[in-house]
Nucleic acid binder design. Structure first.
Lengths: 222, 222
DNA sequence: CGATAACTCTGCACGCTGTACAGAATCGAG
DNA sequence: CTCGATTCTGTACAGCGTGCAGAGTTATCG
């Protein structure tokens, strides 16, 4: 080894593993330096060898989650560019909601790590392939990310996990809750309760993202 | 008074005022029951008369922020429905980013208070006015909220406050940071650095929300 | 080989958090 | 006047991030 001192007993990767394990078992709110350390059988301050502070730990976790997103739908040339974008968006939403703490993590700070750049790059390639200018491709790429991340945030706040069964259960629950809303001030909302209850579903996500994509890919270049 | 016991020295409204004052002065991360209590010159536990717990305080604050959003653009019948939606979206983003802690607050839990319902209702009216079915109007209303809230979340994580000057300063800063990115793996991102640096600006927001709106209002009913 | 300097990890400490619990003070109703 | 409900204070506990001092381990240099 090139450096003096005792060999490290852990690695940043092991710390991240433990952090995700804590989130998976006890939930994102229970994530703490002390808990991760105890899961690793190590004193809390030992972690500061591997991460600068709690925020740095979160950055590392965000990077992991972003890396877990499968970009391959964007390269599936048998699909139209619009279909590629839609399929990728669905995949991105699914991954973020399914990953333990994924949704909570994307809200903890800027999303600008290496894997986020790669994701942006893959999106850019797809839109450019569709025949759009680089500038418009960049704007479209960001808008798509906005939509996906916004969805994930709202669904996570509502308790969603990406699991279809849970999605269905939440929709039923939400439908029941809407029965108790006073309809007098919000008649249209009351009339559309069946739709409102299903806001946080894959179908609604597809509905919106598809229209965003179509809006972006049909408007002539600015 | 109908109830026994000493008169209340505060009100939920006063507690919320103090909470926003704390956020305005010390930032959202410094918001705590104890700080709010001390700002009110009262012991921490006194707040529990007015709010059930910290989460309940946050709920109240979210409600306040949602109430601050001006819905009048949606009723401006001199504009086309699409223009009304766009103008409202811009206003909603501006309000959330400008309100102290507004962006952070919308990420703290579900957004389903009374004022959120009113906002949804006003959106529904506008889309229905444009000639769309109630069901599509509901879906469109949610999609627009997703886009606005997603934008606000990402911009807030990046340090945005809705202030145009700050927006400009952040764009310059971000442009400089992109110089140091290794362009080899992400050539298109590097080529579009001028756009990427301006992702979190009002222009980019208008670009995206307009295309979402157009995509929603031109696609025939499902 | 022995000294040195670098490095990892532990233990203690500080100030902060939300909030449970007990009790004092204050009031309206019987 | 008493009783019970209500508001607020004070104390206490378990937990948090992390600064600091020191013990132990190791590669490199004289």
């Amino acid at each position: 080894m090139a450096t003096p001192g005792p060999a490290r007993r852990l690695s940043e990767s092991a710390v991240l593993d433990a952090a995700f394990a804590v989130v998976a078992e006890h939930g994102f709110d229970a994530l703490s330096i002390r808990r991760v350390a105890s899961a690793l059988g190590v004193s809390p301050n030992a972690l500061y060898t591997y991460v600068a502070d709690r925020a740095d730990l979160l950055r590392g976790m965000v990077e992991r989650v972003m890396a877990a997103i499968d970009l391959s739908a964007l390269e599936t040339t048998t699909l139209s560019p619009a279909d590629r974008l839609e399929q990728f968006a669905v995949e991105m939403r699914r991954t973020l909601l399914g990953h333990p703490g994924g949704a909570a993590l994307i809200m903890t700070g800027p999303i600008d790590g290496p894997h986020s750049l790669l994701l942006n790059e893959a999106l850019l390639r797809t839109v450019v392939d569709a025949g759009y200018s680089l500038d418009d491709a960049a704007r479209a790429s960001y808008s798509l990310q906005v939509y996906v991340l916004g969805t994930v945030m709202l669904e996570a706040a509502d308790g969603g996990t990406g699991d279809p069964e849970r999605e269905e259960a939440l929709a039923v629950e939400r439908r029941a809750a809407l029965e108790h809303v006073d309809a007098s001030g919000v008649p249209l909302t009351a009339q559309t309760a069946d739709i409102v209850a299903r806001y946080n579903t894959t179908e609604q996500f597809r509905w919106g993202i598809r229209r965003l994509i179509d809006g972006m890919l049909t408007t002539p270049s600015s």
